[in-house]
Amino acid sequence: MNLQSKVAIPEEVMTRRVGDETVILDLATGTYFGLDRVGADMWQLMGEGRTLAEVCDAMQALYEATREQLERDVVELAEKLRAQGLIRAA
């Protein structure tokens, strides 16, 4: 995964918000992932078909963080979710 990557969310993966957190779940495999509010925003933006760089652009408008930090966090989250099968490269 790099900043030019786009990701897709497999059809069988579902997301629900509970309290301040979001749970991503693939019920067929029993895989799940919990996200805080910042992670949930990244996830939603990734699911809109943007490149990871564009996800960072949008995140910069929402949060006070350095570009460098955002890029690192977005790519790291995308890698983790791909490793769990909860997203794939588009």
Binding site: E21, V23, L25, G30
Partner: peptide, 15 residues
């Protein structure tokens, strides 16, 4: 936390 509870509920439900 609610998210932790949800994960446990999913794991313990019959389907």
């Amino acid at each position: 936390r609610p998210a932790e509870a949800l994960i446990e509920l999913v794991g313990h439900s019959f389907l």
